[in-house]
Design a protein around this nucleic acid. Sequence first.
DNA 1: ACATCTTGGTTCAGTGAACGAACCTAGGGT
DNA 2: ACCCTAGGTTCGTTCACTGAACCAAGATGT
Lengths: 175, 175
Amino acid sequence: MALGKDYATQECSIARALEVVGERWTLLVIRDALYGVRRYNDFLAHLGVPRAVLAARLQTLTAEGILEKRRYQQSPPRDEYVLTDRGIALWPTLRALGLWGREHFTETQLRTFRHADCGTELGPYGECPACGTVVPVPDVEMVPGPGLDPDPADPVSRALLKPRRLLRPIETDPV
Amino acid sequence: MALGKDYATQECSIARALEVVGERWTLLVIRDALYGVRRYNDFLAHLGVPRAVLAARLQTLTAEGILEKRRYQQSPPRDEYVLTDRGIALWPTLRALGLWGREHFTETQLRTFRHADCGTELGPYGECPACGTVVPVPDVEMVPGPGLDPDPADPVSRALLKPRRLLRPIETDPV
DNA sequence: ACATCTTGGTTCAGTGAACGAACCTAGGGT
DNA sequence: ACCCTAGGTTCGTTCACTGAACCAAGATGT
C-alpha cells in the first residue's frame, strides 16, 4: 500500500500495524508462513502473486523482523523464510479475521483449528474450551474442512490437505 | 487493492475477508466508525484520505453490509454512515491488530480500552479480567494515553481526546 | 564438455489505483 | 444576491501492481 507517509499522521497502533502488514498480499504471506510455507517457490505457487511483489514483501517482512531469512542448505546455497516471534504474534489477528470472513462471507467450512493435545476445536480467541488455556501456536492443529477442493493444482495446496500443526514446514511431494 | 480476481483463487476465509476489508484505508475507516465517526467530512478530516477514495470505500462498505447509510436530518438532506453488526464484528480483529502494533512498533501507550461498567482494562481478547466476560463493544470505553498529541489540528482528533465509549457518535465542537 | 534443471530472484512495459486540487450541487442563512 | 456547508465528482499526475521475459549460481544428466 505504500503507506508510510499517509498513515504516519495517524496516532494509532492500528495504523502503525497496517503500515507494516497492510500492503496487498502481505497478510496472505504471513498466513502461508503460519501454515508452514517457507520457500520462495512455494509462496509463489500457493499465492499466485507476481514474483517481483513476492520478493519485495519477503524483503520488507524480513526488515521488519516478522520473517527471518535463513540458510537451509549450503550447496547450492538456499534460503528459507521463517516466522519470528513477532510474526507468530499475528496469529490472533489472522484468527479473528478468518473467523469474521467465515461467519459473514463463506458458505462452507474450509478449515478448522484444534488444540493438538486434546483435539478440541478452538474458541474464537484461539483458546481451548476444554483446557481453558490459550493454545500456543505450535500446538494448533489445522484440519481441512468439507469446502476445500479435494484435488488442487498446486503442490502446496495439496500438502495442506492433510491435518497438520501450524508452523511445521510443509513437505511438497517430490512426486 | 482490487483483490477480486486474485484472492478469489484462495480457498480461505482470511482471503475472503481481505477482499472485503483489505484495500487501502478500509480498516482505518472501520476503526474510525468504531470510534464514533459517522460523517463524510469527519472521516475526511481525521484520515486525510483523498475524497474520491473515501467515497469509494464508503460505498463498497455499505454494499458489503458493513456500514449502513442513513439520513440523520431531512432538510437539507444529510446522511451518515453507521456500523452494522457485521461491521461491529470486526472489533476483535482491530483489537488484535492494534495490540500487535502497540507491542511491536509503538513506543508510548496511545490509548487504552476499559470495561465501562467496572473500569478494568481489557485483556488481549477484549475480555474483562475482573468480570470474566467478553465486553460488548458499546460497553468498551476508550481512554486516551500519554502518547497522544494534546492539541491536534483536526476537530475529530480533538473530540477523541476525551474518554468515550465505542460507537457513540462524536460531537465535534461547533465553535 | 556441454546442455539442462532448479531455486531464487531482477527487469521492464502496460495497466490500474491512489493522490490531490479543482469543480459541482442542493439546500440554508443573512 | 451572495456566501456557506455537506457531500460528493472530475481529472491529470504519480505510483504500485501485473505478467512475461530474462538472469545467475550451482547441480545434474549424457
